[in-house]
Amino acid sequence: MKKMYSNKLVITSLVLPGVLLFVFAILAPICLSVYYSLTDYSGMGSWNMIGLDNYKALMRDEAFFTALRNSLFLAIGFICIQHPLAIIVAAVLDKLSGRGESFFRCVYFIPNVISVAVIAYLWKFIYNPNFGLLNNILKVFGYKGTVNWLSAENAIWSVLVVLIWHGFGWGMLIYYSGIKNIDPTLYEAAAIDGANQKQTFLRITLPLMKPVIQVNVTMAVISALKQMETVYLLTNGGPGNATQFTATYLYQQAFKAFRYGYGNAISVVFIIICLLATVFLNKIFEEREPERRGR
């Protein structure tokens, strides 16, 4: 039996497809990116090695830091607006039992299964100053005039609203299944001790949800960093660089501004930032882990 389980040929045949995919689709491109980031390649013709010039330029690039600030803005928006809402709605939903529960869960999740392409164009129309839904709602409430939702000041908020709307069902569902995993006898005990709903929520639901909240917060930060599709179609980083994100910026630099080498330098820094953010978040949350494990 042991011999069979350490057969090198069998092991190789089992892991090779995965390893090859990883090398070909992830590792090799990253290495290539590092190489091109050291060149002044425009995307066509010949190129020269220019050392770290691209990285030096990047450190002085206002637009790149705008992109990082926008990611931070999104992450804070997710954590302070989307997630509290999702937890509250999940807790309320948990209180209903029976038919309504699965109906609402289904309705909340529907935007999530719709293609980003449709979502982005749909919201472009919703924000449209001439016949858009939002301006029409304002009109119904008696507001005269039109709001330009995608102006330089408003655009980043408009992007945040779309992303919160689109991802709400996902976050809600994760919190909801976290709440469902809480032992119901705890609630019974709390009820016997005379705790009201607010106390139960703050003293039992929230503390026991900590691990779920940690996972969700990590995901929120990472997805804010990785944001591209919605922004690309909704505003394409504009107006100016108001809604620029790292991924949209590297794309523009490589394919629109023909600075392929520079785009690759952004890619490399982008990967490093994502890795650091993941490690950092795991570290913060790990520190509290031992207490929980000890129980």
Binding site: K2, Y5, S6, K8, V10, I11, L14, V15, G18, V19, F22, A25, I26, A28, P29, I30, L32, S33, Y36, L225, K226, M228, A247, L250, Y251, A254, Y260, G263, N264, S267, V268, F270, I271, C274, L275, T278
Partner: peptide, 29 residues
Amino acid sequence: RMQWKLNGFVKTLLLMGMMIPIHATLLPN
């Protein structure tokens, strides 16, 4: 389940892919 030396390493390597932002590979790919 299989017994070999690099099993932990290979698993970590493959899981690393989760942290890599897809869009950073657009240009080189």
